[in-house]
Design a protein around this nucleic acid. Sequence first.
DNA 1: CGGTACATTGAAGGGGCTCAATCCACGTGG
DNA 2: CCACGTGGATTGAGCCCCTTCAATGTACCG
Lengths: 256, 256
Amino acid sequence: MAPQLLSTRQACLPTPLTRKLAQLVSLTVEEIAVLRDLQSATRLVGRNREIISEGRKYDGLFVLIEGVSIRYRVLHDGRRQILNITLPGDFIGFPGCFFENALYSIAALTDCVVSSMPFAQLLGFFETYPRLAAAIFWSFSCETAMYAEHLIDVGRRSALERVAHFLLELATRLQVIGLADECSYQMPLTQELIGDALGLSVPHVNRTLRQLREENLVAIEGQRVVIKNVEALSRLADFERSYLGRFQLNDLLAGT
Amino acid sequence: MAPQLLSTRQACLPTPLTRKLAQLVSLTVEEIAVLRDLQSATRLVGRNREIISEGRKYDGLFVLIEGVSIRYRVLHDGRRQILNITLPGDFIGFPGCFFENALYSIAALTDCVVSSMPFAQLLGFFETYPRLAAAIFWSFSCETAMYAEHLIDVGRRSALERVAHFLLELATRLQVIGLADECSYQMPLTQELIGDALGLSVPHVNRTLRQLREENLVAIEGQRVVIKNVEALSRLADFERSYLGRFQLNDLLAGT
DNA sequence: CGGTACATTGAAGGGGCTCAATCCACGTGG
DNA sequence: CCACGTGGATTGAGCCCCTTCAATGTACCG
């Protein structure tokens, strides 16, 4: 699945996290070094293993360096809702880990490389590297905004709009970290996972994708998704990418 | 609507926000004073007026002192999704206000008293009052967790489970700020608003409420909701209140 | 070559929607 | 004091989107 997401990266290259944060605040050499150190102690998590288990206690966050994971909850009768898809450069553990017992589980969809970040270190950042801290804080805000968008998805959008919105959001997020080109990418999820993320059944995800294909909005060749008409698709989905970028604290921190 | 939510409060009494945060970290006299100052510059917002308008730019957050407001988005064709219900003591503006243009609108459902809190002040807190800052940060985490819970609601729960979960969450939140007793409270929303929050139509909200009444799980007399069987209702809704409390950073900050 | 994981398609049913009417409480002005 | 308007709750009928269940196809892998 999505083999190029797993391609080996040199430790000296900018990590996805650095890329993301550097778009917000122009990082100093020192800050970049701090970020690199932060991500040096990595751990491998095999495909389908849990990175965080609901109900357990954690003393830190993780940063996903490589791979794809999902945050989810399963109800008592087995229904599952995927809350978010975690891509390289994303934090793993917000907000559930701040609670006494983790609220949600996070599982690796592919083999993953993660680095951990103790809470104490995070708190220390607010004093020593306020600009980094703010950027991290932005990252959390962004994640919350995605939840809100997903809420609109499942609450008020039809299956067609939902899937369209999902494909566009994923495209944008993958582009930010350099894992997608202008209008195509490898889909890291199966149709079952897409269904669990969007509150749809597998057959209906399938039919909906077909409809998008028939209307010539997207093309799907194997795992590869090609968005053939970004304009029309965005209109259909009511997609407005601003919730994935454009932080304003940037200005405030300029003088720090 | 919910007249007692609007009852006049003396400035010297603990505000809802103080109450909420004090449950997390035992606040010092100084910190309480800071919180009080923070909320001293208040503004009145009339019923049905917008507190925050989507697309506009803001340089601060607000704290809701009194009243009820909703965060929402309306799609191009008029469908509306309510993302969250803001109760006294809640912050208004996270996460949308951190973006260059506010992502969502926030409207006062009742006459509201709000106080504003410039970003600069918020950032300053991380240096001067780290424990307060952490408590505020917790508040954001809690809000994100609520989004996640709502996502599970609309994604994977039936209408009956959804409404049950909604009633329980509201009860718990109102209890925290002293606006609900053990098992009853004034419902601040109309059925139309409940529908827009849960992704249901008005008639179906009505039918669902009736069903809950017929099954003797809740009683509704006018605006007053009485939860007659918390146990059974919680089981039905898969409700687990831990996402509304129990922050663990508390320990970390004990020595600060 | 059989097994597993996933995609695809069909048929039938139901949960929730739309549309529409009615009811009720309340406030307001003649 | 009553007629009327308004906002909200309630109820019914018909329908459609999406689900469930089930079968089939297909690629890959040990």
